[in-house]
């Protein structure tokens, strides 16, 4: 009998604590598959964020570091600079990367750190209870903008890939949405490409993954995927922003 699906070696044999329908687990698995396919598990040092993915270190079977909120790119810099042959990635949510950690991600990108960032944009602070994120869409309700985000009150959502694309340090920036079969394939491919770019040793790579949060959107998992497609993709266009 041919085995067509199994747990990647880079993934730990434990149950994840994510909400039903959440894409975090899917993206974790893709990262683990990519690490396996590139044969770099023994060189990998991953840096987890503060947020829903805070326990990612329990789900991976590679070396992992838990960073302070927003500081993952700085921690990753510290590792990569002293271990230049390691393969270093950060996994960060929108609050972690685009609010409290804005300085760290911009400067890691500007320095062209040879690290890879997987950026999960789900427009909300999921773990703390659905507060407004830097990527919350205009009009979108949250527990801290209960009447909906208003530009003149809460400001505009931040497009991270476009922002970082103005810098010379990144060599790969892509935005993907694993909300359908094609999107899943494209997401995996982008993550793999980002890691391959790191192995080339020429600069910084980041994949922004548009994700759902059925719990905070208070909709079914299927409807949350539709919501991403219908509401997020128009504001956060998909594609490769930098590839050099």
């Amino acid at each position: 009998m041919q085995k067509v699906y199994e747990r990647p070696e880079s993934m730990a044999d434990v149950q994840m604590s994510y909400c039903p329908g959440c894409l975090h687990g899917t993206v974790h698995r893709m990262i683990a598959e990519v690490i396996d396919e590139l044969g770099v598990r023994e060189q990998v040092v991953g840096v987890c964020p503060v947020g829903c993915a805070v326990f990612m270190y329990e789900y991976m079977s590679c070396d992992m570091i838990e960073a302070a909120h927003g500081r993952a790119p700085a921690v990753a810099t510290g590792v990569k600079r002293v271990l230049p042959d390691s393969v270093v990635f950060t996994y960060q949510g929108d609050g972690d990367l685009a609010a409290i950690g804005t300085a760290e991600i911009i400067h890691a990108a500007a320095r062209g750190e040879r690290i890879t960032t997987i950026f999960i944009n789900n427009t909300t602070y999921g773990m703390t209870g659905g507060q407004m994120a830097p990527t919350t869409l205009l009009g979108q309700k949250s527990t801290t903008c209960p009447t909906g985000r208003e530009a003149m009150r809460e400001g505009f959502p931040i497009r991270v890939c476009e922002l970082l694309a103005t810098l010379d340090g990144p060599i790969y920036l892509a935005r993907v949405a694993p909300v359908n079969a094609a999107g899943l394939v494209k997401t995996k491919n982008a993550i793999k490409k980002a890691f391959q770019k790191q192995l080339e040793g020429r600069g910084f790579s980041l994949v922004e993954v548009l994700c759902n949060c059925p719990t905070q959107l208070k909709v079914s998992p299927i409807d949350s995927l539709k919501w991403v497609e219908e509401n997020m993709v128009p504001y956060y266009p998909l594609g490769e922003f930098v590839d050099r």
């Binding site: 570091i65 302070a68 810099t77 510290g78 600079r81 271990l83 300085a103 760290e104 911009i106 400067h107």
Partner: peptide, 26 residues
């Protein structure tokens, strides 16, 4: 060794955290 001027004190100490985790005196 490695010298790096960070973007802030917050980043600098987190870089120290990373380098220390990697086993280097920092």
């Amino acid at each position: 060794g490695v010298f790096l001027q960070a973007e802030s004190e917050l980043a600098a100490i987190s870089m120290v955290y990373g380098a220390a985790a990697a086993g280097v005196r920092t």
